[in-house]
Amino acid sequence: MSTTASPTAPERMLVLACGALINELQAVVGTHELDHVDVECLPAKLHNRPSLIAGAVRERIGRKQAEGRSYRRILLGYADCGSAGALDDLCTEFNARAAEGDGPEITRVPGAHCYEFFATASRFAEMSEAEPATFYLTDYLARHFELLVWKGLGIADHPELAEMYFGNYERVVLLTQTPDGDERARVEACARAGAERLGLPLEIVETGYGELETALTEIAAPRRLRQDQVPA
Rank of each mutant, 00 (worst) to 15 (best):
Ala130Met: 07
Arg69Trp: 05
Gly19Glu: 03
Thr4Tyr: 10
Asp89Ile: 04
Gly68Cys: 04
Arg97Pro: 01
Thr31Gln: 15
Leu90Val: 08
Arg97Val: 03
Leu153His: 10
Gly101Phe: 01
Glu196Gln: 11
Gly101Cys: 07
Thr8Leu: 07
Glu183His: 09
Tyr78Cys: 12
Phe166Cys: 07
Leu153Val: 02
Pro10Ser: 10
Asp89Pro: 00
Pro159Gln: 06
Arg73Cys: 08
Gly199Pro: 01
Arg49Asp: 13
Leu16Ser: 04
Pro159Leu: 09
Thr4Met: 08
Gly103Lys: 08
Ala96Glu: 11
Glu146Gly: 05
Gly55Phe: 07
Leu202Gly: 06
Arg72His: 13
Leu161Phe: 07
Pro110Trp: 07
Arg97Glu: 13
Arg192Gly: 04
Glu188Lys: 08
Ala99Gly: 15
Pro222Asp: 05
Val173Gln: 01
Ala220Gly: 08
Arg186Gln: 10
Asn95Arg: 09
Gly111Ser: 05
Asp180Pro: 02
Pro50Tyr: 09
Met13Ile: 15
Gly167Ala: 12
Leu198Lys: 00
Asn168Ser: 14
Arg72Trp: 02
Thr207Pro: 00
Glu11Leu: 08
Gly77Phe: 00
Phe117Met: 02
Cys81Ser: 03
Gly181Cys: 06
Phe117Glu: 01
Ala112Leu: 15
Gly82His: 06
Arg224Trp: 13
Arg58Leu: 14
Ala96Ile: 04
Cys41Thr: 15
Tyr169Phe: 15
Gly30Lys: 09
Lys64Ser: 05
Asn48Leu: 09
Pro179Lys: 00
Thr134Asp: 06
Lys64Tyr: 13
Arg63Pro: 00
Cys18Gln: 03
Leu42Gln: 01
Gly152Ser: 06
Arg223Cys: 12
Asn168Pro: 00
Arg171Asp: 09
Leu90Ser: 00
Asp88Ser: 14
His36Thr: 12
Ala130Val: 04
His113Leu: 04
Met164Asn: 05
Ala185His: 03
Gly101Tyr: 10
Leu46Ser: 11
Ala98Gly: 01
Gly154Phe: 04
Arg69Leu: 14
Ile106Val: 15
Ile61Ser: 04
Glu163Thr: 14
Pro222Ser: 07
Ala121Gly: 15
Ala156Glu: 12
His158Phe: 11
Leu198Gly: 01
Arg197Glu: 08
Ala84Met: 13
Ala189Glu: 14
